[in-house]
Nucleic acid binder design. Structure first.
Lengths: 261, 261
DNA sequence: AATGAGAATTGGTGTTACCACTCCACGGTT
DNA sequence: AACCGTGGAGTGGTAACACCAATTCTCATT
């Protein structure tokens, strides 16, 4: 059933659900889910793969692009197409959520609330499960925050990494991925907010409370501390930028890949 | 190429950042976020749009496909390409999460836990905010559940819609979308689980407790009831299918569009 | 043996052509 | 006059070919 000649009807698959390129997507997804393609692997060249699947190269490329758009594949000109996902913490592309926010007019209030809900849950889980290394990672970032109270940008980095550490300690990579999705969008807004030193001190203190609660294996306290922290962060945010719509927010996101702690 | 001449109508962007098709994606995203394209709108025909953007049709199609893959656009042969998102409840495509689950070997335990965390938060919010209509919607589905105790498939529909109603009552569409993402994946597994009538009765009772807690404006009780419900659901699931990996789970998902209640 | 130039490989884009499907209007029938 | 069938025009879907750009590898030169 390669090409077999008559390019007209597709002999092999008459009842194919959708368009040919969709079929390609399903095929590739199947290869990934079946384990034939492992993270980091390189796909066969487009020309070969197209022939082996019995489709044209543009069609194959359409399928590849669909999977690339959702972050499963990544193509590099001259090098090849690779399966991603091996290296860093699992992370879903935030573009879909961002677009949906624009389409439906989501407010930053909802964003904060979503983030708050997820991070509270993760803080509680982290308090139950965090390993020694994970505790150390959190403490390290906490120290970094205190060490950069006069350097807002640097502080923000440690802030984010602290939350990443908590997420990792929660032991739930799905919640972690979802949190990253939401947090990435909020970051665009927050990065413009130049905090005052006093706020940073206050923020660091709240993070410290979160850490202590987790260290003490107290889920409820961890949840409360995380809630207080995010509520305060939201208030600080809102005071600087009263209107919030997310609809007309221009963004220039480079999908980052911050190393995990 | 358009670089060394044709100053025709290339209003787009000379500052090449990435590949041309990426630029197309950015342009279209910008149009959506800027509000020039509203949900339900039809994009200009590919041939026209390609010309107006100064790119070839395959390149334009690549960009469109990227946005279609993340659920922002939808193309219908013979009809056109449309901006989605108008009709039903906001929902993110679950394919990315599904693929990531396969790549990273996520367990159903994590899935259940993620769902539990999100739904508990939403139950709490719903208890605080649910409107009369939303209460009625929940009650309606609850009645439907009791009415179909001997019809597992029908019961499952009402079950899902009940959770949808709770999500809607939470007033947070982002959490709703995230929950749908996770729930869709779990559904594949759950749909195969044929429950016994006794389980259904028990399940309906738990849903009723959730409803009562929300109706009584008791967030803590709502959260607890939701937690108990999902914990039980998870146990029931695990008892039927002890091994869980999600990695080699074959699925045949048609991205559905269930009408909201 | 190390290094740089060139060839081979591979993805990215443009062009053209044709097919399949959908929508809408026109014309005929009832 | 209302209804239904049929056609055409428009639109996305696929294919084939050619060429460009970036990467990678090979091999000859130093």
């Amino acid at each position: 059933m390669t090409e077999s000649n008559s390019s007209k009807s597709n002999p092999a698959n008459p009842e194919k659900s959708g368009t040919t390129s969709e079929e390609v997507v399903l095929h590739l997804r199947g290869m990934v889910q079946r384990g034939e393609l492992r993270p980091g692997d390189r796909l066969p060249p487009e020309r070969n793969l197209a022939k082996s699947l019995g489709v044209s190269r543009p069609t194959l490329r359409a399928g590849i692009r669909s999977l690339a758009a959702v972050g499963v594949l990544q193509s590099r000109q001259g090098a090849g197409t690779f399966v991603v996902g091996a290296d860093g913490p699992p992370s879903l592309d935030s573009s879909p959520l961002r677009l949906m926010a624009a389409l439906h007019g989501f407010t930053t209030r909802e964003m904060f609330e979503a983030r708050q809900s997820i991070e509270m849950a993760m803080a509680g889980l982290a308090a139950e499960r965090a390993s020694g290394d994970q505790m150390a990672s959190m403490a390290e970032e906490l120290a970094g925050m205190y060490a950069s109270l006069d350097e807002p940008e640097q502080y923000l980095v440690h802030d984010m990494r602290f939350h990443q550490s908590v997420a990792a300690a929660s032991g739930n990579r799905i919640l972690t991925a979802l949190m990253n999705m939401v947090a990435t969008i909020l970051l665009d807004v927050r990065s413009k907010t130049v905090k005052r030193a006093k706020d940073l001190k206050e923020s660091a203190e709240m993070h410290r409370q979160i850490y202590r609660a987790i260290r003490d294996r107290n889920p409820e306290a961890a949840r409360d501390a995380m809630r207080d922290h995010l509520v305060l962060a939201q208030k600080a945010q809102e005071s600087e930028e009263p209107d919030n719509d997310l609809t007309t927010r221009a963004e220039q996101n480079g999908d980052d890949a911050s190393k995990s702690a």
